[in-house]
Structures are given as C-alpha cells and as structure tokens.
Nucleic acid binder design. Sequence first.
DNA 1: AAGGTAACCTGACTGC
DNA 2: TGCAGTCAGGTTACCT
Length: 282
Amino acid sequence: MPELPEVEVTARALRQAISGCVFQGFRHSGKRLRHAFPRAALSRLICMPVLSISRRAKYVLLEFEPGWVAIHLGMSGSIEQATVASQALGLHDHVLLQFGSPAGVPRALVFNDPRRFGSWQWIDRSQTQTLELGALLGDASSGIEPFDPRFNGQWMAESARGRRTGIKQWLMSGSAVVGVGNIYACEALFESGIHPLRKASAISRTRYDRLAQAVKRILQAAIDSGGSTIQNFVGLNGEAGRYGQMHCVYGREGQPCLRCSRPIRRLVIGQRSTFFCHGCQR
DNA sequence: AAGGTAACCTGACTGC
DNA sequence: TGCAGTCAGGTTACCT
C-alpha cells in the first residue's frame, strides 16, 4: 500500500496527534512482523516524551532520547487513532501504543497490518554515530530524499553511471533516491516519456532532468491529496487518500493513453506489474 | 559486485 | 455457493 506519500501523510498526522506526549505503554499481538518486535527497547521508553516524529524513506520515525522507533507499513500497514486505549486488539492489529498528553488526555495508536510485511525496529542513538540513519534501515533506504535539494537530473545521471539495470527497477531500488514505489515509478516514467525497460546508464542528462522533476511533482501532488492508494490506505482518522483518481497509467491496462490514445500496456518487471504507453515512452 | 529470483503473508477478486 | 488461481502499495536473503 504505502509508498512515500502515504508514509509522509501518516507521519504528519502522528505529529498532530502525539507531539509532546509521554509514552505510557504498549501491547503487541505476539505475531511476527518482518523483524522481531523490539519489546525490550520499547519497555525502556515508558515514561519518556516523544521528541519528534519524522519520515526517512518509507519509515516513520518516533524519536526518543535513547533513539528511534522505526515503523515500516509494508504493503498493507496503517496507523490509526484508537478510541479506547484498553480495547482488545482487533483482527490484524499488531501494536497498540498508549500516550499521555500534556493536557492530560490519553491518546492511543493502533498499527494494523493484514499481510505482516510491515516492521518495527529500534535504532539506538549510538548506532548513528557510525552510520547514517538511512543506511541503518537497509539498502532500499540508502539513497537521498526526493525533496533533498541535491536530488536532480545531474544526481540521477551520475548515480546511474554503469548501471545496466532497467530504469524502473533501478528507480525503485532506492539506491539513488528513496520512496519511489511501483505506482509512482510507473507514473513518473510516463510523465517523463521514458520506457520502463530502458537501461539506466543509457538515459541522457536532459531526460534525467525531466524524470527528477516528474518524481518530485508526482510525490508532492500525492502528499497534497492525502496519499494515493488503490484499495485501503487510510489516514489516522480513517479517511482514504484521493490520489488514485489521478493515475495516468497505473492500473489502466487496455485503456487509452491520456496523451496519444493508444492502449496502455502492462508488463511484469521484477515480479511487479508495470504500466506504460508504448507510443509515448521510449 | 551487480543483477535476478524467491520468499515473507493475508485478503480480494475472477472465472469456472 | 464453492473452490482454484491470480494479484496486490515492499524489502531482503540468497543465488549466479
């Protein structure tokens, strides 16, 4: 489900909900997520205030004095406000966090993830003295942020030097820029007129300028409209994102290209559905 | 070392 | 109504 815009929307909502709140306790379903749940680390955070809420790549980061809780929503994860902190965990609810607010009103958050591809990890502050946070989170988070001022066509072209992989897989790998998942990779390549199978090293600087612009514009538009989502992404308040209506190619196999009217094609690249226009993308 | 593939898991939808 | 097959927003361990 969630690519960068959905994670950003979630992080902003969390900032509204729990900034300055004190962590008071948690419950875990006991079911395994992608990593072992960091129960011991969370226990040590009880009675500590949340210092900040941010996003790095597709992770939501809750900062405490000793370090960060890094939450990944995987393919089907979401975080919603719980009405009653003591309520039983529902189906596919895996984590419940309880907070006390400065005003004394208790707050609770629930992490729900049917497919359990999501993850909760603890990053100790001492680890960041040797490695950048993104690198600690894995290969897919090692690139720079799309809204980093360094991210532009030149950055892409230089990073792509010698890469024989297809542009779509390389774009999604997170090695140059993070946060571009399957939907937005399809959309950005359409907008910049680049065929998804073109070798990354065989794309001109001019076309990379266009691609970098497209990535930024599309991600920003998706954030502004509350997150994409084909099926079930919901924000903290349960409101669905609206960006899905704006897709030019994703999910539109057989329908006419909005630019040239030729039918949109679908292709599987690296086990992921890829939608593109054979006429507009070269 | 880069590049490709299989695997993790559940639910929704399609077609017979 | 039921059952089998296919597909889904991501990441990473493990092979070449």
